[in-house]
Design a protein around this nucleic acid. Sequence first.
DNA 1: TCTTGCATACTAATTAATTAGTATGCGGCC
DNA 2: GGCCGCATACTAATTAATTAGTATGCAAGA
Lengths: 127, 127
Amino acid sequence: MRPRSITLTGNELEIMKIVWRLERATVRDVYEELLKERKIAYTTVMTMMKVLEQKGHLKRSAEDKAHVYQPSESRLKVVGSMVTEFLNRVFDGSAAPLLAHLVDQKHITREELAQIAKVRSEPTGKK
Amino acid sequence: MRPRSITLTGNELEIMKIVWRLERATVRDVYEELLKERKIAYTTVMTMMKVLEQKGHLKRSAEDKAHVYQPSESRLKVVGSMVTEFLNRVFDGSAAPLLAHLVDQKHITREELAQIAKVRSEPTGKK
DNA sequence: TCTTGCATACTAATTAATTAGTATGCGGCC
DNA sequence: GGCCGCATACTAATTAATTAGTATGCAAGA
């Protein structure tokens, strides 16, 4: 049988991004945001948010008339695990080849790379 | 309806990695390799390779008794597009936040980062 | 020649993912 | 009070993904 995807699928991530940005949102809030990008039915959003709740990515609280959803985990944490999963799946865990791709495909310049290395390796001197 | 995934799925990538490595392979070749990792049926591998052929990732030639498969595109190209797709989907196309994750999660050290920046920005002096 | 092994083609079953319609209830406004 | 808008719950349809069984054929060895 088909295993449920460990990480977020494309559309699930799209919704999570909105909820992370709004911090707390109703189905309607997310629906309105998504409408800016593409045609979608209100109930479709509801279904997807219910799935996200079942998967543990969203917490629901029946506050007012409409339920309010909030992220269960920080964007940093979730996206971090997505990065790790991608790295393992595509590059067997080695980041260097990924870096090479980023540079070769000009997603990042050598200067930016050097700058990040600099900032991170010399954070004012201590710790 | 559900759209077919643009990029390779987990298992498809697993197979493509093997074929890229072997350069040319029969279903049995791939099957043997996969068996080293996990239990899987021969026909399952065949089905997946047929799908990969339909998707245009593998070319098939009925050489001898068994069909021989070869990659349609280089690993570099396919993986490159996977990187781009991931970057767009997760980070809206910005590589910097991805870099930050790689460093924060210690997938790569500041030293490695600096080294890659150096190698790539000063290739002996000329082009 | 008959069996055996391996190969392919075809069939099939299950669950995830995506999208949305239908049923139904509740709180206001006319 | 009844209708309207919005909300949720339930139902549903379609295709992808994953896994593998069955049917069948061919070639080589006993």
